[in-house]
């Protein structure tokens, strides 16, 4: 592709378990299972390759247990891959292999370059802190040391994500599910990340709330030109946001291409099944 990529994943692999000589033959999309029947090892991601271009939204779809979230966790540097590389292009054009970073460097990279929104807000938020505190944490980690300016910026972010700035000091437990997703988005955007990772952001929300959160994400994408990686099992969500889509099954990428193309003319039998069952 002629466009310059921002993030490039090369032959990423992750398995949970001891592994055995026949693991690879007995798992994968052709066999229809991720767990090796002989040794019980789960092959969550096998030979995953993808490129993420600056400013685009890439969707990852697949059924439960297909390795979507494992892939996202590895890109978020929360999970260490067994093998493979994650290349990142810095703003000065320099390439960095994120898999070689140590814990300290990985956390620093996470704080400055990545934002994540989880399906369950209690994973991304600290329920004991106020909503403002949760958003401010990202600013504090980015060395913001002026309380007044932190308050102003936090209110701005709450405005941007359609939250009432008056509720800055309220506890997250007093917020509804859709609002908590917006708090997570505000928190993820606080330190101007280059990549926003979205892990099933709208699952478990009411349909109308879902639409509002998606609207918000689309608007942010439009105004900030932020790169997004969107994981979902909901093809409708992916169609709304993502230009390109990757389909995963049993730890493998089975199909990749433009979202419209995949939804209109699915090539892989699994994708055909997925499209016909949902739409």
């Amino acid at each position: 592709m002629s466009e310059q990529w921002l993030l490039r994943v090369e032959q990423l692999e992750k398995h949970f378990g001891p592994g055995c000589p026949v693991c690879r033959q007995l798992t994968g999309p052709t066999t229809g299972r991720s767990r090796c029947p002989r040794c019980g090892t789960v092959w969550a991601c096998v030979d995953v390759n993808l490129q993420l271009h600056a400013g685009e939204v890439l969707g990852i779809v697949g059924e439960s247990g297909s390795g979507k979230s494992t892939l996202l966790q590895m890109i978020y540097l929360a999970l260490r891959p067994d093998s493979g590389h994650i290349w990142y292009r810095e703003s000065d054009g320099q390439l960095r292999d994120l898999t070689t970073l140590n814990r300290y460097e990985a956390r620093l990279f996470q704080n400055t370059h990545l934002g994540i929104v989880y399906q369950r807000p209690e994973l991304g938020l600290n329920m004991r802190f106020s909503v403002g505190g949760n958003v401010a944490e990202k600013l504090l980690l980015a060395e913001w040391r002026h309380f007044g300016r932190i308050r102003v910026r936090t209110s701005e972010l709450m405005n941007k994500t359609e939250l009432l700035p008056e509720r800055i000091d309220d506890e997250p437990t007093t917020f509804s599910g859709g609002m908590l997703q917006r708090v997570q988005i505000a928190r993820a955007l606080a330190s101007h990340p280059t990549i926003l990772l979205l892990d099933e952001v709208t699952s478990g929300l009411d349909v109308s709330v879902q639409a509002r959160v998606l609207d918000l994400l689309r608007r942010i994408q439009w105004t900030d030109r932020i790169t997004m990686l969107l994981v979902s099992h909901d093809l409708g969500v992916v169609r709304q946001l993502a230009r390109r889509t990757i389909v995963m099954k049993n730890g493998h990428i089975v199909e990749a291409g433009l979202t419209d193309q995949i939804l209109e003319d699915p090539q892989h039998p699994y994708t055909q099944l997925l499209v016909s069952s949902v739409l």
């Binding site: 956390r107 600290n126 802190f129 106020s130 403002g132 505190g133 944490e137 504090l140 000091d169």
Partner: peptide
């Protein structure tokens, strides 16, 4: 400590002011 992940402690200070 190993990751110098002191965000929570800073939020504690922030909330103390709040």
């Amino acid at each position: 400590h190993s990751e110098a992940d002191y965000g929570k402690m800073w939020v504690y200070m922030y909330e103390s002011i709040v």
